[in-house]
Structure formats: structure tokens, C-alpha cells
Amino acid sequence: IGSLMYASIFGNVSAIIQRLYSGTARYHTQMLRVREFIRFHQIPNPLRQRLEEYFQHAWSYTNGIDMNAVLKGFPECLQADICLHLNRSLLQHCKPFRGATKGCLRALAMKFKTTHAPPGDTLVHAGDLLTALYFISRGSIEILRGDVVVAILGKNDIFGEPLNLYARPGKSNGDVRALTYCDLHKIHRDDLLEVLDMYPEFSDHFWSSLEITFNLRDTNMIPGSPGSTELEGGFSRQRKRKLSFRRRTDKDTEQPGEVSALGPGRAGAGPSSRGRPGGPWGESPSSGPSSPESSEDEGPGRSSSPLRLVPFSSPRPPGEPPGGEPLMEDCEKSSDTCNPLSGAFSGVSNIFSFWGDSRGRQYQELPRCPAPTPSLLNIPLSSPGRRPRGDVESRLDALQRQLNRLETRLSADMATVLQLLQRQMTLVPPAYSAVTTPGPGPTSTSPLLPVSPLPTLTLDSLSQVSQFMACEELPPGAPELPQEGPTRRLSLPGQLGALTSQPLHRHGSDPG
């Protein structure tokens, strides 16, 4: 009997000691992992102490058991019943959930998450997105703005933001810190809205009876308010094209079509300037034949640059190039080494500058006005007194259609001029006259002087055409309008007829 009692007592005591040691061994194993994590990542002392304290409290609170892992091991129907039991206190005593059906309560219970916070733990920081609604079931918390405590909340209090009033989550206007050990039930806004969409009859009752104890939403960050730039940057990543407008005076608003859609830094370009900076079609017209890549860069430059609305530039004389043409100036200075066709295309550029300027006046029909002061630039669209967005969009579309028509007509005119030049060069190729044979009589004449090349004649003739079109064909006081194609086609051969009437002889060394 004594040996039996000794064996039973010894066996029970050893089993008890073994169970104690097993729990202690698990605790030390998990604690060792936490300390190894702290050492590996070199976490500083204040945060390291918070980690160790939280682990110790969580171990004593749950005995080292992962409740979520245990809950996920059950089937979904059983999980709903378990969640309904775990959140029964909240669902029974909170006013917004009263009167809900059994199915609605089960769906809500599945969406709730339980959070346990030790003292000093910050649940929400200032500036964080308010993605959830919090219900306090135990403990107390404090809300701070800077170093000032603005509120202390306790059991059955609710904090967050009214989700039904805002389409997008706002930002917190303060820090939420736990004063004691707290148990909180939180539900994400997407989950709550999903359940309320499934039960629309409960939705009206819920929003009407929901009383948020403390609204954390920062009202200064609401979209459309003066301080909402940061919020707009976070939620409006896919922005449309940006529009900046110059201020319109009362006198300017009476004149229709007073602005032109141009790229940034293009205030001095012609009315047909689009795409790359520098001139019509993204580059100076005089350098068009020598740089074919300008047409390839036109599309990307047009689509990537934001639109700006600026006044037209001052008018340019008909014979003056659009500006920024070092290529043609070098050719004029060193005409001995340049291609003979460069002079002809220089005359073509003069005609283009004249036609572009006159067509700009035809479509816009307003006098040039000086540029406004820099303080009046970049007025935002949302400022008071601005035109409605639809009106601005319609004006932009009208300007775009005008620019497209202008570009089409300029292309047709350019093709006409090039065809005339090619026809003239085919009839009378460039050549130098040879020395004529002296006559049989004693009164022999001296050799004839060489005839100037055709490109120079073409430049003079085209300059005469531009001056003739600019000065004589337009009646005084009438708006400057571009001439039609047949009129220009008839004027060019008439001007060139006198020049080509002389018999030109080919030089023996000319390969053409």
C-alpha cells in the first residue's frame, strides 16, 4: 500500500511539474524568437521594450494561443456562430445594431475584428487614413492633437468618421493612444458598406441611429477645401490634362476667341504652333527640309505637354522668318557652300510665315494684346468667377478644330508651292551661260556676264508674291485673308516669265 501511494503521488507530481515546464519551455522559446528578432533588426531601446511588454501581456492574456488560427480551423457556418458569440456584447448593447435580422448580425459579426491594445500603444496616428470604424468594449483611450489631450473615450464609445457622408476615406486629425488595456472591435469601411448593401432595409436605420462619439476626420483635408492638395495627390493619381488660365478682364471677355491653345513656353509662336517648341509643326519652317525628324516628334510632343491658354504674339512682318533660324542665316552668309535649293526654301518659309499670320487673323479676328503681368498667370479653374468647365471645354474643342483646319490648309498650300517650284525647275534647270562666239564683223562684242542661278530668282519672285499679296490685293481696312490656291498659281508664272525669257546656255562643266 505504501509503495502504491508513493507511486501515485510521485507520478502525479511529476506530471504536474512536467506540464509546468512544458508551458515555461514554450514561453521561453517564443521569447527567444522575439529577442532574436530584436537583435537581428537592431531595434532601439524604447521600441524594444514595448515589443517585450506586449509579448508578455499577450502570452498571459491568451496563454500563447493564436485565436485567429484556431477560429480559421472551423467551417464557415461554425465561424459565424463563434463570431456572433464573441461580439454578442457589442451587437446587443450598441444602439445602431438593434433591430437587425439574424442574418445581418451574422454577416456583421464575420466582418468585425477584435484588437487588444496595451497602455501607451498608439492605435491611430495623425494623418493616417481612416479605413475603419472603432467600437470600444473595454478600457479607455485618449485622443491628442500635438501634445494636447482633446478627448478621453471609454466603454461603448465610437470613434472614426461617418462613412455615409464621404465617398473616400479621410485623414485623422489626431493621435489615438490607449490609456489602459483596451479591447476594441473594428470593422473596415469596405466590409461595412458591403453588408449594408446586402441589407438595404437595415442601412437607413443604421446610419440614422449611429452616433460617433469623436469624429477623427480632418475637415481641412476634404477635397475642394484650401488644404486638400495632399489628399488630392493621394487619391487622384490618374489626373486628366491640367489647364491653367490667364485672368480675363471685362474688356477681354467681350471679345470671342481671344486665346489660343499652345504648349508651355510657346507664347511667341504662331497660331498653328503645336507639339515641339520653336515654330509651326514643332520646328522652324525654314529647317523643315533639312530635319525630317521633326514630323516624327510632333505626335509625342503634342500628347505629353499640358495645355496652356495664352494670348497671341505680336504680328510678324511678311518677309521675316518666324524666328530662331540660325540654319538659314548661316546659309545666307556662306552662300557659296550651301545647297542652291536652300534659297528657294527660304522664300517658301517667308510665304508660310505670311500665310500663317494672315490665317491666324482670319480665324481669330481680334487685335493683338500685350501679355498680362506675371502675377495674373496660372489662375486655377476652381477659383470664384471662372467660367463653367463645359464652356471652357467647348472653347478648347473649337480652337482645336480651327487649328486642324489651319494645319490642313497650310499643308495644301505648301504642296502647291512645291509643285510650282518643281515645275519651274523642270522647265528651266539651273545653269550658267557659256561665252558666246564673236560675230564675223570687226565690231565684236565682249563675252556675256554669267546669269544668276535660278534659286536666287525664285527667292526674289516669291518675296514679290508675298509683298504683292500682303499690300496690293487686300483693300484698305479689310481683314488680311489668305489668297486662294488658283490665284497664287496664276501669279507665280507671271512673275517668273520675264526672268526666264532670256536664252540660257548650259555650261560645259555643268553635270545637269
Rank of each mutant, 00 (worst) to 15 (best):
S461C: 09
G282S: 05
R237Y: 09
P479G: 11
L457Y: 09
L192P: 03
L133Y: 01
Q238E: 10
E194V: 06
K251D: 13
P479F: 10
P264R: 10
D510K: 07
I136T: 01
V259A: 14
G170F: 03
A344Q: 12
G227L: 13
L179V: 10
P226A: 03
A398N: 10
I187M: 03
F312G: 07
S461I: 09
S313P: 13
N220H: 08
V149D: 01
G347A: 08
E472R: 10
S313I: 13
L153T: 03
L153S: 02
I141G: 01
P226N: 06
L377K: 03
L133K: 01
P447D: 08
P438S: 09
G441S: 08
Q400Y: 01
G477P: 10
V392Y: 05
D190C: 14
P317N: 13
L133V: 10
D252C: 06
C338M: 08
K242I: 13
S305F: 06
Q464F: 09
G257E: 13
A167D: 12
D157Y: 01
N215F: 02
S228C: 10
I212P: 03
R401M: 10
P370E: 08
M425G: 09
I152K: 01
R266E: 13
G324K: 09
G270Y: 15
S284E: 12
E232Y: 13
T229M: 07
R368T: 09
T500A: 11
L381F: 08
L396A: 08
S382P: 12
K171R: 11
R274V: 05
M198A: 06
S140D: 04
P447W: 04
S236L: 10
C182F: 01
D147C: 03
L481W: 04
R248N: 09
R316Y: 12
F245L: 10
S334R: 09
A261K: 09
K251N: 13
E201D: 10
R316S: 09
R189S: 06
Q238V: 10
N164W: 07
S461T: 08
L449G: 09
F159W: 01
S375Q: 14
R316H: 15
V176R: 02
G356E: 10
L184R: 02
R308P: 10
F468A: 07
R246T: 09
R302C: 14
Y199Q: 03
P318A: 15
D190V: 08
E296D: 05
S411I: 08
E254Y: 07
P256Q: 10
P321G: 03
S411E: 08
R189K: 05
R395V: 11
E407P: 03
S137D: 07
V392S: 03
S383E: 09
P370I: 09
P169G: 03
T416N: 13
P479K: 15
P200H: 05
G477D: 08
S208G: 13
Q495S: 10
F214R: 03
M414L: 13
L457Q: 09
D252Q: 07
S228G: 08
A431W: 10
P475Q: 13
F214M: 12
A178S: 10
R389F: 12
D460T: 12
G324A: 11
S509K: 10
F214L: 05
L309E: 13
S172C: 06
T180C: 05
R217P: 03
L165P: 10
P226M: 12
L341V: 09
S463H: 14
I222C: 10
S287Q: 15
I379F: 10
N156Y: 12
M221T: 12
P450G: 10
R217Y: 02
A267L: 12
K240V: 11
V392D: 03
E407I: 06
G439S: 11
A261D: 13
A344G: 11
G497L: 03
P372Q: 13
R302V: 08
S466Q: 11
G139Y: 03
E296L: 15
S463K: 14
L492R: 12
L231G: 09
P200L: 01
Q495Y: 09
V348D: 07
I136K: 01
Q419H: 14
G439N: 15
H505K: 10
I143R: 01
G146Y: 06
R239P: 07
S358F: 15
I143H: 01
F206Q: 03
P311M: 12
Y199P: 01
D183T: 13
R237I: 13
P271H: 04
T253D: 07
P285S: 08
Q400L: 11
I351V: 09
L454W: 08
S209Y: 07
S358E: 14
L403K: 03
S463V: 12
S291I: 15
Y166N: 10
S382I: 13
T437D: 08
A478L: 10
G174A: 12
D252I: 08
D183N: 04
Y181D: 11
S284L: 05
Q400T: 04
I379L: 06
P372K: 10
V392A: 15
L192W: 01
A371H: 12
L231S: 11
G508F: 06
L454Y: 13
R395Q: 11
T131N: 12
A344Y: 09
D336M: 13
G146N: 06
R248D: 12
S383K: 05
L406P: 01
E320V: 13
M414E: 01
Q422M: 11
V149F: 01
L165N: 08
L341N: 07
D330H: 15
P292D: 09
G324F: 14
I152N: 06
F245G: 11
A261Q: 09
L144I: 11
S287Y: 15
D128E: 14
V148K: 11
D190R: 07
G139V: 02
L129E: 10
D397E: 10
L499G: 13
E365L: 09
N173I: 13
S375F: 07
P271Q: 15
R302N: 15
H507R: 05
D183I: 05
R168Y: 08
G360Y: 08
T373E: 09
Q464C: 12
Q362L: 08
L474F: 13
T219P: 12
S346Q: 14
S304L: 11
D330V: 11
R368A: 13
F135S: 02
R138W: 03
E258F: 12
L496S: 07
T408Y: 06
V428C: 06
S446H: 08
G234V: 11
Q362G: 08
Y166V: 07
S140N: 15
D128M: 01
D190F: 04
A498I: 07
G299K: 15
V451S: 06
E296F: 07
S294A: 15
P289C: 13
H205G: 08
G139M: 02
N220I: 12
Q362N: 06
Q422D: 11
R359M: 12
S305P: 08
T213F: 01
L179T: 08
L192G: 01
T443K: 04
N156L: 05
D413S: 05
S375A: 09
E365T: 07
G234K: 08
R247D: 10
E142L: 05
L133Q: 01
L410R: 03
P511G: 09
M328S: 12
L403E: 03
G170W: 02
R247C: 11
S501V: 10
A470I: 11
E232Q: 12
R266M: 11
D197M: 06
T408C: 13
R387P: 08
A344W: 04
Y166K: 13
S244H: 11
Q424L: 04
P300M: 01
I187C: 03
G360I: 13
S346P: 07
G441N: 04
R395N: 08
P503R: 08
H185Q: 08
D157T: 03
P317H: 09
I187V: 08
R145A: 08
G360W: 15
D357G: 09
L341C: 09
E472L: 10
V259H: 13
L216T: 02
Q402I: 05
K240Q: 10
S294K: 04
S314E: 12
P453D: 12
V435G: 11
P440C: 15
P455K: 12
I212W: 02
S353P: 10
M469Q: 11
V417W: 01
P479I: 06
S446E: 13
P453I: 07
L399R: 02
L184Y: 10
D175Y: 07
G347V: 11
S272N: 07
S203P: 01
L179R: 09
P384M: 15
P370W: 04
L216A: 01
P289H: 04
S305T: 05
P285E: 13
D413M: 03
R361V: 09
V465H: 07
G439M: 09
R266K: 11
